[in-house]
Design a protein around this nucleic acid. Structure first.
Length: 472
DNA sequence: CTATGGCACGGATT
DNA sequence: AATCCGTGCCATAG
């Protein structure tokens, strides 16, 4: 008896563990799918309409956060507020507000899909069937920046079709999600992005001209020169530069739009919606941080009590199935709680450790490994890995970054290099950078500096001269 | 000759 | 066990 019980116990816990692990890896969008699927074919599971806070189980105002959990705790002002935030609206199919083009976003391959496939799936519906192959062909000729490695003319010649048709297809491709993808050069990509942006917001005058005629000057920060060429003021030129670096991206495949350059790994991961949102309480900088862990559900998930009752009067042959359903349902609910709990503890600690990073930006990132954190939280390191992988975070400045960036070992160094180079007027070579970095207690090899510099998309010293009269 | 980028190796991380 | 990362060595461009 006791043996049987123990066996039962260990079975459930191992299943429990396995499923918690599985749930932990899922992003909020994937979680939504999983739950939807489960709701659809498991009658024992029930979604209560009433919204209660998943953390403290108190009723929730219609569209607000939990009044208890999001209240600043009185004594510790620095303590971040971490809570699970039910945000079904994010996933309500008609998500038209966000930056993404409309996509059947409920598909499984969000994280690991490569760029050509990702784009092709967007453009396919807009194309004639016979043009789809052509689009696929074109998309195989993208470099890692999302730019074309061939020319429309070559494609047309190779396939013996009119140039205009190729151009037409490319134009459609360019308007797909990494906007500007499939352009021939950075200039073209920027112009496409500019066109799209122009529909929804104000653009500084002469931006187009600046891109067309002076991108070289622009990228070398030679504003004086550019202002002269465009016959506009220096202030205007700087405005344009700021606008471009803030809103446009010359290399569509490099994911980040917000800041100047793609930090993190060069892997392009397009995030549709965040899994975690970090903000100041009431949007007031200076207030404690408020961390929302997105739960893609509005109601409360639980085992249907009616089903439990019905089980008693079940027919013999169905009994087995029903029991099974019930088992699965309660397991899911438990595991979901477990997952939320883990995420909460993880973020709680993470936000404390990386507070400066969240507030002040990349340079303040503290080097941190998953192993260290796993020890602190007393969980297995693979748990942290799973929890972190593939998740997106929205920072208070509205930038979207992968959660894994919190564990980046070199991001802070890279941003220091970026700062140094931006501030200096004389182009510094890599060895000089090594020396400057050493002064800030950053000791890395010359070769490594070169690599970081490249990662930041910064040209080598001899190519960013100031007095270079190089025209395009 | 100097500054960089490529390749590949060993150690750390996941 | 697989992957990532920093680095040293070497080839190459200027």
């Amino acid at each position: 008896m006791s043996f049987a019980f123990r066996q039962f116990q260990s079975q459930t816990t191992s299943a429990h563990l396995a499923q918690t692990m599985a749930l932990l890896t899922l992003t909020s969008a994937e979680l939504r799918q999983k739950i939807d699927a489960e709701l659809a074919n498991n009658p024992a599971l029930e979604l209560l309409e009433e919204r209660t806070c998943p953390t403290c189980h108190r009723p929730l105002p219609p569209h607000g956060h939990c009044p208890v959990c999001s209240r600043p705790s009185s004594n510790a002002a620095d303590e971040p507020i971490v809570f699970i935030s039910p945000r079904e609206d994010f996933f309500a199919g008609s998500g038209s507000g966000t930056s993404t083009e409309d996509m059947p976003e409920d598909n499984t391959a969000t994280a690991t899909e490569d760029l050509p496939t990702y784009v092709l799936r967007q453009v396919a519906p807009e194309l004639d069937p016979q043009d789809r192959g052509l689009a696929a062909y074109i998309l195989t000729h993208l470099n890692e920046d999302g730019l074309l490695t061939t020319t429309p003319l070559e494609v047309a010649r190779y396939h013996h079709i009119p140039l205009s048709r190729v151009q037409n297809i490319i134009s459609i491709i360019q308007h797909a999600d990494p906007v500007g993808v499939g352009s021939a050069c950075p200039e073209e990509a920027l112009l496409v992005q500019l066109d799209i942006l122009a529909e929804s917001c104000e653009i500084p005058p002469y931006t187009r001209e600046a891109i067309e005629e002076g991108l070289n000057l622009l990228s070398r920060h030679q504003y004086q020169e550019l202002a002269h060429q465009l016959k506009i003021s220096l202030t205007q030129t700087k405005e344009i530069a700021a606008f471009i670096s803030e809103n446009l991206n010359p290399y569509p495949a490099r994911s980040h739009w917000g800041d100047s350059r793609d930090p993190g790994n060069a892997a392009m991961q397009v995030f549709h919606h965040p899994d975690i949102i970090i903000n100041y309480l009431n949007d007031q900088p200076g207030n404690p941080l408020m961390v929302e862990i997105i739960m893609p559900l509005a109601g409360t998930l639980r085992v249907n009590p009616m089903f439990r009752q019905a089980l008693r009067q079940a027919e013999e042959n169905k009994m087995e199935d029903w029991k099974n359903d019930l088992e699965r349902a309660s397991l899911l609910v438990k595991c979901l709680q477990q997952r939320n709990n883990t995420m909460k503890r993880l973020m709680q600690r993470l936000v404390v450790l990386q507070r400066n990073f969240i507030i002040n930006g990349e340079a303040s990132l503290v080097p941190l490994t998953r192993a260290v954190l796993s020890k602190e939280l007393e969980v297995h390191e693979s748990t942290i890995s799973r929890a972190v992988a593939g998740k997106a975070v929205q920072l208070p400045n509205k930038r979207m970054i992968p959660l894994s960036m919190f564990f980046s070992r070199n991001l802070n160094i890279r941003s220091v290099i970026k700062e140094i180079i931006e501030r200096e007027n004389r182009p510094l070579n890599d060895s000089e950078l090594v020396r400057l970095l050493a002064k800030q207690d950053i000791n890395i090899a010359r070769r490594t500096v070169a690599k970081y510099r490249a990662m930041e998309g910064i040209l080598p010293a001899h190519l960013r001269q100031i007095p270079g009269s190089s025209t395009t």
